[in-house]
Computed example of a mutant assay.
Amino acid sequence: MNSSPLVHTVGGATFAKCNAENQHLFTVNAGVSGEEALQHASLLMSCVNTLTFLGAMDDGNEAMRWASHYLSEMAKALIDDVTLGLQHAQDGGL
């Protein structure tokens, strides 16, 4: 039986740009199980899906659109970091 390598986040993905220099405010922590990180990303995207649907029905609620934007940015960072972990594992952990 071929066992796939355990994949973990590497801590390379950032999100939440701020200030004039576009510094990133947050970074994904290294060492989190890739499976758990993807589960969390899925939960975030479920919230995004709900918020964008509700926001589309209510033109006056800009907060839902901003919330969905920030949540999707977090989910993307998680997915990007797991992808970096997969690449790291394929390269033999180098």
Results as ranks from 00 to 15, higher is better:
residue 10 V to D: 02
residue 91 D to W: 03
residue 75 A to Y: 01
residue 79 I to W: 00
residue 39 Q to S: 11
residue 87 Q to K: 15
residue 14 T to L: 03
residue 64 M to F: 06
residue 88 H to W: 10
residue 3 S to D: 10
residue 49 N to L: 04
residue 51 L to H: 01
residue 62 E to L: 13
residue 11 G to C: 09
residue 71 L to M: 06
residue 72 S to V: 00
residue 90 Q to E: 14
residue 1 M to Q: 08
residue 74 M to G: 06
residue 82 V to H: 07
residue 10 V to Q: 15
residue 79 I to D: 00
residue 74 M to E: 08
residue 94 L to V: 09
residue 14 T to A: 04
residue 40 H to G: 07
residue 58 D to V: 08
residue 25 L to F: 05
residue 56 A to Q: 15
residue 16 A to M: 11
residue 86 L to F: 06
residue 67 A to W: 01
residue 41 A to E: 03
residue 26 F to E: 07
residue 54 L to D: 03
residue 73 E to V: 02
residue 14 T to P: 01
residue 17 K to M: 03
residue 54 L to K: 09
residue 43 L to R: 13
residue 26 F to S: 10
residue 18 C to N: 11
residue 13 A to N: 06
residue 80 D to L: 12
residue 9 T to V: 08
residue 17 K to H: 02
residue 70 Y to K: 10
residue 27 T to P: 06
residue 42 S to L: 05
residue 36 E to W: 10
residue 21 E to K: 13
residue 86 L to P: 04
residue 76 K to L: 04
residue 5 P to Q: 04
residue 38 L to S: 08
residue 89 A to N: 08
residue 30 A to M: 08
residue 49 N to P: 01
residue 59 D to V: 12
residue 33 S to N: 11
residue 52 T to Y: 01
residue 24 H to M: 01
residue 47 C to H: 08
residue 84 L to W: 02
residue 69 H to I: 04
residue 24 H to W: 00
residue 36 E to A: 13
residue 33 S to L: 10
residue 20 A to M: 05
residue 33 S to H: 04
residue 93 G to S: 07
residue 4 S to H: 10
residue 82 V to L: 13
residue 51 L to C: 10
residue 11 G to I: 07
residue 52 T to C: 07
residue 57 M to K: 15
residue 43 L to D: 09
residue 69 H to R: 09
residue 2 N to V: 14
residue 15 F to A: 09
residue 54 L to Y: 02
residue 93 G to K: 06
residue 93 G to Q: 05
residue 22 N to K: 04
residue 84 L to K: 13
residue 5 P to G: 04
residue 33 S to R: 09
residue 59 D to W: 01
residue 36 E to H: 14
residue 85 G to F: 04
residue 43 L to E: 07
residue 86 L to E: 09
residue 92 G to E: 01
residue 8 H to Q: 15
residue 76 K to Q: 10
residue 2 N to Y: 07
residue 4 S to C: 06
residue 34 G to V: 00
residue 49 N to Y: 03
residue 54 L to H: 07
residue 16 A to W: 07
residue 33 S to A: 12
residue 48 V to M: 00
residue 28 V to Y: 04
residue 23 Q to H: 05
residue 68 S to D: 00
residue 2 N to Q: 06
residue 54 L to T: 03
residue 88 H to N: 14
residue 85 G to M: 08
residue 11 G to Y: 03
residue 14 T to G: 03
residue 52 T to A: 00
residue 35 E to Q: 10
residue 94 L to N: 12
residue 49 N to A: 08
residue 30 A to N: 09
residue 26 F to M: 15
residue 68 S to H: 00
residue 29 N to E: 12
residue 48 V to K: 02
residue 76 K to G: 08
residue 38 L to R: 14
residue 87 Q to F: 07
residue 66 W to K: 15
residue 61 N to M: 05
residue 31 G to E: 08
residue 70 Y to M: 10
residue 42 S to P: 02
residue 63 A to N: 04
residue 37 A to N: 12
residue 92 G to D: 02
residue 46 S to D: 10
residue 79 I to G: 01
residue 76 K to D: 02
residue 53 F to E: 14
residue 20 A to I: 05
residue 11 G to Q: 09
residue 10 V to N: 09
residue 52 T to Q: 05
residue 60 G to M: 01
residue 3 S to C: 03
residue 26 F to T: 05
residue 34 G to T: 03
